[in-house]
Simulated scan of single mutants.
Amino acid sequence: MSNQNMDERSFSGTVTRATGSWYDVDTGGAVLRCRIRGRMRLKGVRSTSPVVVGDRVHGSGASDGSWVIERVEPRRNYVIRRASNLSKESHIIAANIDRALLLVTLAEPETAPEFVDRFLVTCEAYKVPATLLLAKSDIQDPAAMEAFRAVYEAAGYPVLEVSARTGAGVEEVRTLLGGRTTLLAGNSGVGKSTLVQTVDPSLDIRTGEISDSHHKGRHTTTFSTMYPLADGGRIIDTPGIKGFGLIDIDGAELWHYFPEMMRLAPGCRFYNCTHVHEPGCAVRDAVERGGLAWPRYESYLKILDEDDKYRK
């Protein structure tokens, strides 16, 4: 067994599935079903789970014949969100990611702009390159898609229009995935699992339809799961995310995670400008001139206001 000494019953590998109780670890030669030591916690991380998909872990066999994770290697990055409203705990979605792909739909269902911006802020904060996928492009309004592209490409993010139904953009997504570990995220109903199966038909991933009664997506992925791709690389399919609360991001530093604001900030009169009320603010001037998209600035203000209570 690769990466494993059967005499000592020790192993090392990558977590490919985490349910909170059991963890699948790919050792390179086999997938082991593991649990974690009850006392194991990661220093400095208040997380709902100390082990997540993408973690590199080490462990050994227990006396009862089961496998136990004993140590997690330091993470080079991760995508994290607040576990729930008013919670101080965090939920790490996945770790050690080469790129995050966020699926967005402008209708059926609608992805809120603030959700997109919160996700991108987290990617910036934890150094995860992000690409936006405008999903179900065959049924979206072309003018709305063009307006979306203009906002986010100006901010510095790649935007791809994709459709699992017509195949538009699928080859470009395959190119992005090749040889990398990629996190695929989005609200329920945006078509994550369907897109993955279109990119790699060999994968067996459940899909669901939009609920007519509430016009929202049904959850088809219960736990984050990493899948190997036929053409190389690995993709992490995540449960649909309803909200994306930020955690451990100071209000005074929030603008650091809006790339277009970072480019403008050196022109502000005050070095500690908050870009909200100060005179001589290059960011606010750019918004008024149309040089910085209002929807992005509006998200910045909303996040500052709504998240302030969690920082007290």
Rank of each mutant, 00 (worst) to 15 (best):
M1K: 05
M1H: 10
R9I: 01
S10A: 06
G13W: 06
G13M: 10
T14F: 03
T19A: 07
T19G: 10
G20S: 13
W22Y: 13
D26T: 09
G29L: 04
A30F: 01
L32C: 06
R33C: 06
R33M: 06
R35T: 15
G38Y: 08
R39Y: 02
R41H: 12
S47A: 15
S47I: 00
T48Y: 00
G54N: 12
G54V: 06
D55A: 07
R56S: 08
G59S: 08
D64S: 04
V68H: 03
V72P: 00
N85S: 09
S87M: 03
K88P: 00
I92R: 00
I92L: 00
I92M: 00
A94Y: 00
R99K: 12
L101S: 09
V104L: 08
T105S: 15
E108L: 13
E110Y: 11
T111K: 11
E114Y: 03
F115N: 01
V116L: 12
V116H: 06
L120D: 07
L120G: 06
L120F: 04
V121Y: 01
Y126C: 07
T131D: 13
T131S: 14
L132K: 10
L134W: 09
L134P: 08
A135F: 07
I139G: 05
Q140H: 07
D141F: 03
D141I: 07
D141H: 05
A143T: 11
E146Q: 14
E146K: 12
R149D: 08
Y152C: 10
E153F: 09
E153I: 06
A155P: 01
Y157K: 11
E161F: 01
S163T: 12
T166V: 10
T166I: 11
E171M: 07
R174F: 10
R174P: 04
T175S: 14
L176P: 07
L177Q: 08
G178R: 14
G179T: 04
T181K: 11
N187Y: 05
V190L: 09
V190Q: 06
K192G: 04
S193P: 03
L195F: 11
Q197S: 10
T198L: 04
G208T: 14
I210H: 05
I210L: 14
I210D: 05
S211W: 01
D212I: 03
K216L: 13
T220Y: 02
T222H: 08
T222W: 02
L229S: 12
A230T: 15
D231M: 15
D231A: 15
G232H: 13
G232M: 09
R234N: 14
D237E: 07
T238N: 04
I241V: 13
K242L: 04
G243Y: 00
F244T: 01
L246D: 05
L246W: 00
A252G: 13
L254C: 03
E260N: 09
M261T: 03
R263F: 01
A265R: 05
P266V: 10
F270A: 12
Y271S: 14
Y271I: 10
T274E: 14
A282D: 08
R284C: 05
A286D: 09
A286I: 05
V287I: 11
E288A: 15
E288F: 01
R289T: 07
G290T: 09
A293W: 02
E298N: 11
I303N: 06
L304K: 11
L304I: 04
E306I: 02
D307S: 10
D308V: 02
Y310W: 14
R311G: 02
K312Q: 13
K312V: 11
